[in-house]
Design a protein around this nucleic acid. Structure first.
Length: 827
RNA sequence: GCGGAUGUGGCGGAACUGGUAGACGCGCUAGAUUUAGGAUCUAGUGAGCUUUGCUCGUGGAGGUUCGAGUCCUCUCAUCCGCACCA
């Protein structure tokens, strides 16, 4: 052993050398090759907020470990990286630092790219893209005009949070306790015209195709399914008694419980409902109430958690079956954006209606009784919400839920007062933002022609980057040179749309653009179909619904345009958990962040990568621990020393037949570990247990090496060490790059094929059998694997310790699980 | 409020198919080494007790089973999402 071999582990040097090797060999450049099985591994791209946080490090280390593992399996791996570059924080930073959002964003990208490179991720940097580049958003604008031509986008009025002092639209995040975060003014809901994409047209397919996503966590599919919220019910009309306005003769409601129709005792409409607004014209108290309800931010959680309030509009609705008049209330828990903005209230059989009826002294009527006498129904205490048998419902008495549903639906249909309907909770995707730092919506508003899409030849509609931001929102609306234009259709003077796209538009197709980001004559090309779908997608659980649903939708739109040939963008999904510190989410506002770069400076990237992968399973939350990082560093140092103490090649080939029992045992451990780790990487994605198993193997090697030093011993140890290095190579790639060479090999660990488990090494003669008495562990015996059930039972009953426990009572039953355990039940 | 998850030693976690609870690591204790500190190495480490061993123990309360951290019912706590944060 030379002095050179004993050099202590120097992460900085190891990492610089490994990265230099990968750079020199363009190791991560991905090229389309139809003869090789492809593997597209993608981590959700970051918003360039300034610097990497631990959540990024965790996300990208998981993706990198999977990429490198798949590469070692011999696949043609693509792992790209880019920037979700548009968004609100750039505008805030611009105001704070008096720097244009564009230059702030570009310098952040440069800084963060450097950070990612220090972490040694196996990205094909030639494919890097940023969504704020004209070559990216040009195609997004083009695609939007295609969707417009197909009738898949439309304009309608929708509510926003309006700050009356700053005269600007606020994001939900910018509304704190009902007030604008800068001005402190009470926000108001305001209706403005906005663009929508018809995602509801694809609601059923988005729901149905969840079944195809076998590689997705069940919880994410359930969340998406609930979000889409398909329900079957009945749409029906209530006429309004004594209408004073011809346009407001009736109001329509949707219900999934038409069986309770005879129990309706009032109607509740949203404060924004035309009926409420109409009634308020002659009722100042009602107008006041509605105005108060409009000072609540536009967020469902806000609505759902506030006190349920309502007020009588004074109007009456005519029950479509019995013709009786029921009062129409306006209530703050009815959402204008869901269904028709009005609900029929059945306080006897809906808890929220019951609570409201109690509060306002409205009638509670029972029309459903339990099917069995054991079920309690006491409408004085709470609503009876279960399905049952109809009572107090005239001709429908005695029917069960299904019969009543059909009979009442048929009754209403015959009389033209209603019909069966499938309803979705999902709403169309509003893509207009009254913001500057986003992709301009490529539309032109002409007085004569209306909204006209910008022709392809004039795309992209460039976002001017050299601007100044102030508190009063987007500068685009004040820039005549931006918005003054001519109508592409009639040539008259017209005004360009000054709203920009929701940033979810950019993140809904970037995965496809990575395949062909240099393509300048079309949005996508054939390379997209080589790489897509993404084989493994990794990102935070917080994206379980919105981003992932929009991306699935967009992918289907791309398919319908003939740009991709798959139905779904992401074959497998891994949702990583949050990074916590002291039990709370690591965040700037809580002041509990840990800077990855200072740790990398101190311990090296491999230690940081190792700790984030070891501390917990990727889909669980990760509790940050400084001493845990220290432990990972210690492990690498120990491993380095262990490698130095081993005399590596040249050694002869292993002859498995001549191994001693001890040598066989270590070889068994090596191959058992390899089998486990392979499964952990490939199927379970539990890198924490893969690392733990490798540590166990290294502990076993240590113990073995203490008194085994001959040549055959070293052959067995060489194999065990090689396995260990290759098994950790996806997680601590720099370390393993150097370690592989220390084990006497030329070339790079990352180019080595994943080793194969030798079945012959796994053969064991004996099995350890657990002996239980009444389910409690009492003894263990080692028996030959070939032993019969009867013999095993006999051996178990004859065991000394077992004898002591069963001598008191009689043996009633013996359960034998071959190769595992014997449980003796006494009585 | 609705939807989804999580809960196991002093701490992070393991136990994959109902079959040895606590792998692996951190921390701690003792010892070795060291002028000291640090680093390193060795051993121990769920709790309790009448300590060759026994009893208890996976948020709580019930249940199913020869056997439950794992399955079922109820319940408590914490976290995430709720459509303009990304």
């Amino acid at each position: 052993m030379t002095n050179d071999d004993m050099i202590a582990y120097n992460p900085k040097q190891v990492e610089i050398e490994a990265q230099a090797y990968w750079d020199a060999h363009s190791s991560f450049k991905a090229t389309e090759d139809p003869d090789k099985e492809k593997f597209y591994c993608l981590s959700m791209f970051p918003y360039p907020s300034g610097h990497l946080h631990m959540g990024h490090v965790r996300n990208y280390t998981i993706g990198d470990a999977i990429s490198r593992f798949q590469r070692m399996l011999g696949k043609n791996v693509l792992q790209p990286m880019g920037w979700d570059a548009f968004g609100l924080p750039a505008e805030n930073a611009a105001m704070q630092n008096k720097v244009p959002p564009a230059s702030w964003t570009y310098s952040n990208i440069d800084y963060m790219r450097d950070q990612l490179q220090k972490l040694g991720y196996a990205y094909d940097w030639e494919r890097e893209l940023a969504t704020c580049h004209r070559n990216y958003y040009k195609w997004e604008q083009w695609f939007f005009t295609r969707l417009y031509d197909k009738g898949l986008v439309y304009k309608k009025e929708a509510e926003v949070n309006w700050d009356p002092v700053d005269q600007t639209v606020l994001a939900n995040e910018q509304v704190v306790d009902g007030r604008g975060w800068r001005s402190g003014a009470l926000v108001e809901r305001r209706n403005i015209p906005q663009w929508f994409v018809k995602i509801t047209a694809m609601a059923q397919e988005l729901l149905d195709d969840l079944d195809k996503l076998e590689g997705w966590p069940e919880k994410v599919k359930i969340m998406q399914s609930n979000w889409i919220g398909r329900s079957e019910g009945v749409n029906l009309d209530f006429e309004i008694a004594e209408p004073t306005d011809a346009s407001l003769r009736s109001l329509s409601v949707y219900t999934t419980r038409p069986d309770t129709l005879m129990g309706v005792t009032y109607i509740a409409v949203a404060p924004q409902h035309p009926v409420a607004i109409k009634a308020a014209k002659t009722n100042s108290r009602l107008a006041q109430f509605i105005a108060e309800q409009n000072q609540i931010k536009v967020a469902e959680a806000e609505m759902a958690t506030m006190e349920k309030l309502g007020m009588d509009t004074g109007l009456k609705a005519i029950h479509p079956i019995n013709g009786e008049g029921v009062p129409i209330y306006t209530a703050n828990f009815v959402l204008m954006s869901y269904g028709s903005g009005a609900v029929m209230a059945v306080p006897g059989h809906d808890q929220r209606d019951w609570d409201f009826a109690r509060k306002y002294g409205l009638e509670i009527k029972q029309v459903v009784e339990p099917l069995s006498g054991e079920v309690i129904c006491d409408l004085n205490r709470e609503a009876f919400v279960e399905k049952g048998r109809l009572i107090n419902s005239g001709q429908f008495n005695g029917l069960n839920f299904t019969e009543a549903f059909e009979a009442i639906a048929a009754y209403l249909t015959e009389r033209g007062r209603g019909e069966k309907t499938v309803n979705y909770r999902l709403r169309d995707w509003g893509v207009s933002r009254q913001r500057y730092w986003g992709a301009p919506i490529p539309m032109i508003n002409c007085d004569a022609c209306g909204a006209v899409p910008v022709p392809e030849s004039e795309l992209p509609v460039l976002l001017p980057e050299d601007i100044e931001m102030d508190e009063s929102g987007s500068p685009l609306g004040k820039m005549a040179e931006f918005y003054k234009t001519n109508c592409p259709s009639c040539g008259a003077a017209a005004r360009r749309e000054t709203d920009t796209f929701d940033t979810f538009m950019e993140s809904s197709w970037y995965f496809a653009r990575f395949a062909c980001k240099d393509q300048n004559t079309s949005m996508l090309d054939a390379r997209a179909n080589y790489w897509l779908p993404v084989d493994q997608y990794i990102g935070g659980i917080e994206h379980a619904i919105l981003h992932l649903l929009y991306a699935r939708f967009y992918h289907k739109l791309l398919r319908d345009e003939g740009l991709v040939n798959s139905d779904e963008p992401f074959a497998r999904l891994l949702t990583q958990g949050m990074v916590l510190k002291d039990g709370a989410k690591m965040s700037k506002s809580k002041g509990n962040t840990v800077d990855p770069m200072s740790l990398i400076d101190r311990y090296g990237a491999d230690t940081v990568r190792m700790f984030t992968m070891f501390a917990s399973a990727p889909d669980q939350s990760l509790d940050w621990s400084d001493s845990g990082v220290e432990g990972s560093y210690r492990f690498l140092k120990r491993f380095w020393k262990q490698l130095s103490e081993h005399e590596a090649l040249p050694l002869p080939e292993m002859n498995s037949l001549t191994l001693s029992a001890e040598q066989k045992k270590l070889r068994l451990k090596s191959h058992q570990t390899l089998a486990k780790v392979t499964d952990d990487y490939k199927r379970r994605h539990t890198f924490n247990t893969a690392i733990a198993a490798t540590m166990e193997l290294l502990n076993a090697i240590s113990k073995f090496s203490e008194d085994h030093q001959d040549e055959t011993d070293r052959i067995v140890v060489q194999e065990a060490l090689e396995f260990s290095v290759l098994m950790l190579a996806p997680i601590v790639p720099h370390f393993c790059h150097a370690a592989w060479q220390r084990l006497g090999h030329e070339g790079a660990a990352m180019d080595v094929l994943w080793p194969e488990v030798a079945e012959s090494a796994l053969v064991q003669d004996n099995a350890l059998i657990v002996l239980q008495v009444n389910g409690k562990l009492r003894s263990k015996i080692e028996v030959s694997r070939g032993i019969s059930k009867d013999e095993l039972e006999k051996l178990a009953l004859g065991d000394d310790i077992i004898q002591r426990f069963i001598s008191k009572g009689s043996v009633r039953k013996v359960i034998v699980v071959p190769g595992k355990l014997v449980n003796i039940v006494t009585g």
